[in-house]
Design a protein around this nucleic acid. Sequence first.
DNA 1: ATATACACCTGACCGC
DNA 2: TGCGGTCAGGTGTATA
Length: 292
Amino acid sequence: MPELPEVEVVRRGIADHAVGRTVTSVEVLHPRSVRRQPGGGTELAARLAGRTLVAARRRGKFLWIDLDDDTALLAHLGMSGQLLVQPGDRQDEKHLRVRLRFSEEGEHADRGAELRFVDQRTFGGLTAVDTVESDGERVPVPVAHIGRDPLDPRFDLEAAVGAYRRRRTELKRALLDQTVVSGIGNIYADEALWRARLHSLRPTARLTRPDVRNVLGAATEVMTEALAQGGTSFDALYVDVHGESGYFERSLAVYGREDEPCYRCGTAIRRSAFMNRSSYWCPRCQRVPRHT
DNA sequence: ATATACACCTGACCGC
DNA sequence: TGCGGTCAGGTGTATA
């Protein structure tokens, strides 16, 4: 599942239904889902066996589970990944890629449940990794280059504003760059740009500080609202750990609304090609910059 | 250091 | 029915 709100929904599910459990076995059904693991599935299993899941954490779209030996199980959902907590006797999903089973000693509400990584397109994956101190916090090594996201209590808005204005790129490209501010993907970038009335092609270097504050504030706002509704789901691909969809799709103002009226001015929403995908925007509220 | 192009996958949908 | 093309919420790597 893609952007920050959807990943946070999953993180909470892991925290509620998997943390505290001890891994007894790891079954890898598709090697591509563990391609980032040196040593592959064998090494993943070796690093997880006997480990207890200590905490579920997230930065942007990266999700990880701290283990009791200062390492972590890192998950990225890519375009189509799901982490599900399922009863062990539930039939395997068509795109089940990795299964974790747990010890049944002690008392817990999810007795018999297993953690399943399901991923149709296999852009996502699981990796057992070491952690590193980064900016006063221990994070998985592959997450060290990812910027804090706007829902992080230690997110520094003014630093992000400065970093954006120092970039020589276009605004939407900057929003999608996970190294400065993380968590924003194609949907919430378009929604934030519409709320801030800024065009995706505006050169970041020529934006005012208030412009950048506005668009980052809008991104924070729209992702917070989406999270409160369980995230955005167009279909059964983006679900929580129990396979349930969120409801934010009905709140999207521009994404997926080509030719439909802008909720502010009634002008037909446009769709343009952008980085092998699409941008949705209101041609009246979001003026195209003259020079691009 | 920074910006772009492309690669990596499966499945749904559309026009022919 | 089938075929080819297009599109989908992302990131890593190679190249300029």
